[in-house]
Amino acid sequence: MIWKIFLFLLLVFVSVAGIAFPIVENPQYWYEFPFIPGLGENAKIIFFHVPTAWLTVIGFLMSTIYSFKYLRKKNLDDDVKSYAAAQLGMVFCILATITGAVWAKFAWGSFWSWDPRQTSIFALLLIYGAWFALRSSIESEEKRATLSAVYSMIAFITVPFFIFIMPRIMTGLHPGSIPTNPNEEQVSPVINFKMNGNMQLIFFLSLIGFTILYFWMWQVGYKSMLLKEKLDKQLIRG
């Protein structure tokens, strides 16, 4: 119970701080963020967009780990855990796509422009979508667990390409990617920007808060699936 209150307070603080703290040219007080040329007020999305993208990766990773465990031990419990993780990953993947697109509208001028990052998150959405489509097409529980575990392993070895390699080798507009002209001495501040201390603090608090939230949600999802299974069995027995 204590940690739920702690999580609530943490997320409230992060939300309020992330939205309400002012951005000024020369930060003097602890609650002021520095002004980043080219980003301005848009920079605040980092407190909400980056954690969702991070949780997408966590969800995908956990789903694959439990798939791997299922293939080794053939314990259907692991399959349920993997499914719960993937469901959450899908939710956060959609959230990351939407928040990113909204930010892109204000920062780049259009919702979607096939930036390498956008391509890679789109590929992730496709992988999740295909995974759920595969699961819904199989009736037998064990068969579904095995085949979807194998597919998630195969998908997982192609994911690093999208998340870690492609956005870093292709030129793009997203913060953190290679600038369009690498020979330029002065890299555009939008692509290569530094956070100051308090911005970093709020950013990492937000990451921690969202990660705890993720694990809580995952546990609730897993338990609800177990209860649903139990109820189904009771209904069948009459």
Partner: peptide, 16 residues
Amino acid sequence: KAGAKGTLYPVLSFPI
């Protein structure tokens, strides 16, 4: 093995 022969194939293969 999945039984859904035709339609799922491009869906599963494309992201890979």
